[in-house]
Design a protein around this nucleic acid. Structure first.
Lengths: 340, 340
DNA sequence: TTGAAAGCGCTAACAG
DNA sequence: CTGTTAGCGCTTTCAA
């Protein structure tokens, strides 16, 4: 059907291995004669429209050049910044002639086909994986990289310095004169290392000034809203775990007639398109998602072909930065009037 | 390294083909004796931890069981409802032991490796593809399916009945007493068949009542905002091409002090999480994204292995439905006062 | 640098 | 139903 190295070999009057080697660039071409035949072979190949059969190559080499995007939760890989991470990852892999394969992990066990059947040479993950998947990967010596998660120090990972991000966010509010700053993680947020890290960043900034902490971790929006609109000593600033909380809060404050940023300053996490068009535009902590993809690709590819005991888990970090927009401003001079 | 059918064959005292056939379920097992050996072989296979080598199978069969997710624009596959389409597609393919592969199409020409190298058995697309990619797919007899696009009638496709959706949206506003209803497509919207279809639905509804059309196709938000806040005969309702327009408009109206829905009713397109938390929650046209993935999978898989001239382009349609939330209400009794 | 030859693990056509 | 026998197209020793 399609052209093979044998047909080219015949046409060129050389052996198939020579063709394969030359087309693969596996030959130094130091002698003049060999350089000439090499040129001739490349010419014939092009003329005949030769394409290496990747299935044959995968079989022969024992490598598919596929990297699995392993995930247990659909939403996660499409959530927030992760789409950008994925798309940069795809591009980075592509440069090394690798492709990314969707590998959903669920009860059906279909993942075994992909992982154990040798459909991929390595994998990347956003969340930590079920133990059985992890051990299957290990048993097959498939390298794995964690993206934006540090739950397993024995695995290479690229992380965002969330502590620094939350620290900067909180510091920003403190710099604007805010004394009572709340930190909010919604109750529906999935477990993730960033929760603890952002909280740590918040604490570090708060504690440095001797201000009081208002930690609302894993709470409902109603409870937090209550804190924000009732009582005498209400927070005047809020650092949200993500844009979900920020969206909920902004929405609620609008309903309660609390003005942002005049009465309350709000900071979100992650620089998404939508937050630029919120009312008002959201001050948030962003990071360069493309870097994560690049680093991730580098880390998986590095370990492919490396004997498993010669590998070492490496961590690469990406620094976030604060993006100041309209949702933060100077602390109100005095406490607002109670509305309820 | 890993177990092969030969080792099993030897252990079981049968030929390798017998093992392969039985493990593959290619044998009826009608005789008692054959049923027994079949059982024995399966037992041995399990005991030895046998896994068919998918690379070998792909090579031998000339099929990788991979479907390419072809895209020229990163943003598109992660945009709006498409993430849900993709994730349902992955799941649907998985049921048939197929996997989805990211296949970005760009100037680097890396897509040729994937398409021409035989890394995939078929493809799906959101946008219509560059001609060269299309013809490459055709030449290699790889089936292709368009998702939510009908730009090429010779290709199988699953589409959303956008005309019906826009019709329902407009009808909803008319039913609320609105007489002046604007249709807005932002200038940055990428060319897509849905633009014309949604416009057609809008027109059909408007024309049926003899009302006047206010078509703002490919305009900037400033111009549309101008129309909405100035002049005597201002529209009281607006049907947006997507959530982008809806977001921009809601944001702008808030700045101008125009109340939604009291002064202006707004309808968006696509039922995204974020729109449920807008202020007010957005009335929008939604559809079942999972259906698109399912249908899409069915359509590509159907044509794999089918001789190219026995194939026929099939179109499957998904019906949208109007989701009424807070951004639409009865038409204001009289025209608002001019603000500028 | 080149050629010959032996796989890689599975499928499939053909006899039996 | 089962076994035999060729492949599938490329890679990779091993000699030359």
């Amino acid at each position: 059907m399609s052209v093979t190295i044998y047909e080219i070999a015949e046409r060129a009057g050389v052996s198939s291995s020579t063709v394969a080697r030359i087309l693969r660039g596996d030959v130094k071409e130091s002698y003049r004669r060999s350089a000439e035949t090499a040129e001739r072979i490349r010419h014939i190949a092009k003329e005949m429209g030769y394409r290496p059969n990747l299935r044959a190559r995968a079989f022969s080499r024992g490598r598919t050049h596929g990297i699995g995007l392993l995930y247990t939760d659909d939403a996660w890989i499409f959530e927030g910044m992760n789409t950008e991470v994925v798309s940069s990852l795809v591009r980075a892999l592509q440069k090394s002639k690798y492709h990314l394969v969707f590998a959903p992990i669920d009860a059906s066990g279909a993942w075994e086909e992909i992982v154990l059947g040798g459909q991929i040479d390595g994998g990347v993950v956003f969340q930590s994986l079920p133990a059985e998947v992890l051990s299957a990967m290990q048993k097959h010596e498939l390298p794995l990289v964690l993206l934006g998660d540090n739950s397993d120090p024995t695995i290479s990972q690229v992380v965002v310095d969330d502590t620094a991000g939350a620290y900067a966010a909180t510091k920003h509010l403190l710099g604007l004169g805010h004394k009572r700053i709340l930190f909010f993680v919604h109750q529906t947020v999935k477990p993730h290392c960033s929760i603890a890290e952002r909280l740590a960043g918040y604490r570090a900034a708060i504690d440095a000034t001797g201000a009081e902490r208002y930690e609302c971790v894993r709470m409902s929006e109603e409870d937090v809203i209550d804190i924000l609109v009732r009582g005498r000593e209400r927070p005047t600033g809020i650092v949200c775990y993500s844009n979900l909380e920020a969206t909920l809060i902004v929405h609620a404050m609008w309903q309660y007639g609390v003005s942002i940023p005049a009465d309350l300053s709000v900071i979100g996490f992650n620089d998404l398109f939508a937050t630029r068009y919120m009312t008002p535009p959201l001050t948030t902590v962003g990071f360069d998602a493309a870097k994560i993809g690049e680093y991730g690709a580098r880390l998986v590819l590095k370990d492919i072909g490396t004997p498993i005991d010669a590998r070492q888990a490496i961590e690469m970090a990406v620094k976030p930065k604060l993006i100041v927009r309209g949702s933060t401003g100077p602390a109100p001079v005095r406490a607002r009037m109670a509305t309820g």
